[in-house]
């Protein structure tokens, strides 16, 4: 790892001002992505600003039809939160599938979506549920937030403070886990909003990161059942292809995972 200077911020404002004073700073939350990258010397920030001890950035709250997860809340807390399990059980389930127990104790939702790995879990939930990303400057709809591989709408120094999810009528998640990395080989989140809209998002599939799957949304709108997806065909073009699976394999996984997710949603 290259030399760096560690700072522990106690408030969002302090973190923002520390960022402004450093030459090439990076925020550090759970460190479960940034530290491996720094160890490989693929990143060498002059300063790392630790957000994980900022009390205002930790917690899960349900109010009315909205579930809010503050950005530095670890995956383990989401997976075991009574509020999350009650409001959006599929979201708590998703958190319980991320990495392994040690990763879940440290890794956070803010770090996951800021990183926007094309095979990460949370982006699928944000997109399918129509969540809003809150930062220290503005609110960004999930639709606009994710902008391709490892790219988001965040500006330099902008801090995610929370993510708010509208509570859906129904939601389900199904993931084919890569057996070694545990990221999604492909995973699909399906949701039926309270106003009846159907939204389906797939992660681990597309070369441009998390995506909506319009063909499956249309099929589910006509008939909310796993069998409605039987006849849908997902084009393999634009999907990821690597030693773990071809794009044709992933195209089929999008269908199969969507069917399992609908079955799980009930």
């Amino acid at each position: 790892m290259y030399q760096t200077t560690y700072h522990r911020a106690s408030s969002v404002d302090e973190a923002a001002s520390l960022f402004g004073k450093s030459s090439e700073a990076k925020f550090l939350a759970g460190g479960q992505t940034l530290l491996p990258v720094m160890k490989q010397r693929l990143a060498g920030p002059s300063d790392v600003i630790d957000l994980s001890k900022i009390k205002d950035m930790i917690g899960v709250e349900a109010a009315g039809d909205t579930l809010t997860i503050k950005a530095a809340t670890p995956h383990y807390d989401v997976a075991t939160s009574d509020a999350a399990k009650k409001a959006i059980p599929a979201l708590a389930y998703l958190a319980s599938l991320i990495g392994d127990p040690a990763v879940r104790y440290r890794g956070t939702i803010g770090g996951s979506i800021a990183n926007n790995d094309p095979a990460a879990d949370y982006p699928a939930a944000l997109l399918a549920l129509g969540a809003t990303v809150k930062t220290n400057k503005r609110s960004i709809p999930a639709e606009d937030f994710f902008q391709g591989l490892f790219t988001t709408a965040l500006e330099d120094g902008e801090i995610i403070t929370a993510v708010s999810f509208p509570v859906p009528a129904k939601a389900g998640y199904a993931k084919m886990r890569h057996p070694a990395s545990r990221f999604a080989l492909t995973a699909v989140f399906v949701a039926q909003t309270k106003s009846g809209e159907i939204r389906v998002a797939a992660t681990g599939a597309s070369q441009s990161g998390v995506m909506r799957v319009g063909a499956i949304e249309a099929a589910l709108k006509a008939n909310w059942s796993p069998s409605a997806i039987d006849s849908v065909s997902i084009p393999a073009s634009g999907l990821l292809s690597d030693i773990h699976g071809t794009s044709e394999y992933r195209a089929n996984l999008v269908k199969v995972m969507a069917q399992r997710a609908v079955a799980a949603a009930g």
Binding site: Y6, R8, L28, G31, Q32, L35, P36, K39, V48, D50, S52, D100, P101, A102, V103, Y105, R106
Partner: peptide
């Protein structure tokens, strides 16, 4: 790999994926 797991404040964490300062 998990060979580095220790307990920090009662929770199992990977000590290779945490700065001493954290």
């Amino acid at each position: 790999c998990g060979a580095c797991v220790v307990h920090m404040d009662g929770k199992a964490v990977k000590s290779c994926t945490m700065l001493a300062g954290q």
